[in-house]
């Protein structure tokens, strides 16, 4: 396992790090200076982080009701929930992204529904908008939060919520003080997966977000494949890695906190 980690993770990461400090005359910080010297790049980085957070919020708002439905369901319905959650993951991300192009376009069902309900006066496209991208990202990454959630809920006892109910707690109180703390380890795992997936999702960002919504993976792709400036691309990749890595590390630390995750 150690050997695999060295070959497939540490070595490429080391190469990426070395490239990020490479310059025409040797080791340099110029690539990082070039990235941070342009306020536009900083805006792109914050946009990427924001998209990650918004997707985490969106998937959480949808994932919790689905998780609760799973928890309240019988064995057969639970299998259906897991199966339906897995189905989108069986298709390529590219296919799902292009399906969203159809859904969000002027001729798509959202536009036609808004038009039919009289909410808009003309067909409206949600392509090349941040909201459209967010909708697509939430749907695409939803299984990443549902699966850890149901893994936790599958082995969660019903006795604790029932005891709370017997003690007179209302439904909302049970949800907030009993169920959500029980779900927290699964949510934390899901947040880590969703955030990491969203911030690196080049295909969806480029296809749905268009050129008006620029995110870090697009900058990296452009530097690698169009401008062939690999040292700058490596520096940008390191910045993305460190930014998302810091946030994921924080989430990982929270997930180990005994009181927060209900192991007190």
């Amino acid at each position: 396992m150690l050997l695999l980690s060295v070959v497939f993770f540490a070595t490429p990461l080391g190469l990426l790090l070395a490239f990020s400090f490479a310059g025409p005359t040797g080791v340099t910080l110029d690539n990082f200076a070039e990235f941070f010297g342009d306020p536009f790049n900083f805006k792109v980085l914050t946009n990427t982080m924001r998209l990650g957070f918004e997707t985490v919020i969106g998937t959480t708002l949808l994932g919790i009701p689905i998780g609760l439905f799973y928890w309240h369901s019988g064995r057969r319905m639970r299998q259906v929930v897991v199966f339906l959650s897995l189905i989108p993951m069986l298709t390529s991300n590219v296919v799902r992204t292009f399906a969203w192009i159809v859904i969000l376009s002027r001729q798509g069902p959202i536009s036609q529904a808004l038009l039919g309900l009289g909410l808009t006066g003309a067909p409206t496209s949600l392509l090349s908008t941040e909201f459209g991208l967010l909708l697509a990202m939430v749907q695409i990454d939803l299984p990443l939060i549902i699966l850890p959630l149901v893994a936790i809920l599958a082995r969660t006892s019903r006795q604790l919520p029932e005891a709370a109910e017997v003690a007179g707690a209302g439904h909302w109180r049970i949800l907030v003080t009993v169920l959500l703390p029980m779900m927290l380890p699964g949510l934390l795992a899901g947040w880590i997966l969703v955030f990491a997936s969203t911030s690196a999702s080049y295909v969806t960002q480029a296809a749905i977000g268009g050129a008006r919504n620029v995110y870090v993976p697009q900058l990296i792709t452009r530097q690698v494949g169009v401008l062939f400036n690999w040292p700058l691309a490596s520096a940008i990749a390191m910045v993305l890695l460190l930014s998302t890595g810091a946030l994921l590390m924080a989430l990982a630390l929270i997930s180990r906190h005994r009181r927060l995750v209900g192991h007190a």
């Binding site: 192009i101 376009s105 001729q107 496209s125 008006r212």
Partner: peptide
């Protein structure tokens, strides 16, 4: 004009297909 800019030419073909 800015609203009509796509990230790559491949996406233009997909948008053309959709009547976008």
């Amino acid at each position: 004009l800015r609203a009509g800019v796509t990230d790559t030419t491949n996406h233009q073909m997909a948008l053309y297909q959709q009547g976008e």
